[in-house]
Design a protein around this nucleic acid. Structure first.
Lengths: 206, 206
DNA sequence: CCGGCGACTGAATGACCATTCATTCATTGC
DNA sequence: GCAATGAATGAATGGTCATTCAGTCGCCGG
């Protein structure tokens, strides 16, 4: 029974390993959100995750790698979920609404994650240059294409650059998230999604 | 001639002191922009400013104080300039255009300042909480009031929250600035101002 | 000239903390 | 049982700066 044994072995061993990696990552989100990345010590992350300091280095190359991993996992989830959510929506306005709701839902569900994504990730130009050239571009591309398809379908004005409109929408959502994260008042961030989309579609002018 | 003497003395002594403080601040913008706040050493800032490390501490309380001072001076300038520029413009749409142009002009003129304002200042939640509750609120208030007055004048739709619209506009401008700063291509950031305002006023829908 | 003042210097100090690695511990196959 | 394996530990290391402060320098009034 070599195959079955190997499979069972893999299941037994792999699960705790993934759990532990995940526990460390979640601890990192919490610790970075509370104290800031540079003010956080790897030993703090380890303590919150319930492991020793050295263990962090069995799962991550470095402290930086923790931050990178948080970003990559979150963006990958966001992009996958975004693509899936758009698959069964045809109306261009509804598509934008869907994107906006997912964006704010994700952050509004976990304030610590929002802090890390809205603040801690932006702590250095090097980081930002690296990040913005990959996943962030992919994300912006999804919005850009949605707008461009909406124009082709006749739902949106043709005299607006899809690129500019995508940046405006993303910037607006980003600002809503940042404001919510910094605000003492507890309100549902996701509620801002429709407000933003309605304003951008309908315009402020009469 | 005690008064005249004192005045002359003040002029002679005060000017170099202000120059030096200014030189240190400008050096800090350059160094922080190139390497990031935490990767920058106070000694680097001093070297670029042409002074010794200790001299920095004659003008600033700490390394933090350098960052705070950059932010406060920039925001104070922005708010003063904004208020002055709005004084002689009546049309609500032109007023928003004016705000947008000033915002992007300021950052587009100095990429290092843009890097510090768009990235380095946001490196920790503590910083952001502190900043966003004062100058940033003042800045948002100017936009909010302009929109609210535009509604009263009948130029803007009444069924949009001025607060939400202000955040959308600010977020859009912020995103334009961040994109420009991260972009290799050299284009005039200020050109985005009208694009953003036109889109937000006119809306993306037909 | 001289004495004193204050701006400026930069080497020395003292913390701090990411990362390493010799050692312990638990589990597995035989 | 008993090696063998490798995951986990956490104390020790080494390097990095922010900040200080004793001393230098140049200027000014007398």
């Amino acid at each position: 029974m070599p195959a079955a044994s190997a499979r069972r072995l893999a299941a037994v061993k792999a699960t705790p390993a993934i759990d532990k990696r995940d526990a460390i990552l979640r601890a990192a989100i919490k610790v970075f959100a509370r104290h800031g990345y540079f003010q956080s010590q790897v030993a703090d992350v380890a303590r919150v995750a319930g492991v020793a300091a050295g263990t962090v280095y069995l799962y991550f190359r470095s402290k930086d790698d923790l931050l990178v991993s948080i970003f990559e996992r979150t963006m990958k989830d966001a992009i996958d979920e975004g693509r899936a959510a758009l698959a069964d929506v045809a109306d261009p306005v509804d598509r934008l609404r869907r994107i906006a709701r997912l964006h704010l839902d994700r952050l509004g569900r976990d304030r610590d994650l929002a802090v890390v994504m809205q603040v801690e990730l932006r702590q250095s130009i090097k980081f930002m240059e690296r990040f913005s050239s990959t996943h962030l571009q992919d994300y912006l591309n999804i919005i850009r294409r949605t707008i461009s398809e909406g124009q082709a379908a006749g739902a949106f004005r043709n005299d607006v650059s899809p690129n500019a409109a995508a940046k405006v929408l993303f910037g607006a959502l980003d600002e809503m998230a940042t404001n919510w994260m910094l605000s003492r008042r507890k309100y549902a961030l996701a509620g801002d999604a429709d407000v933003v989309v309605d304003l951008i579609i309908g315009g402020l002018g009469r």
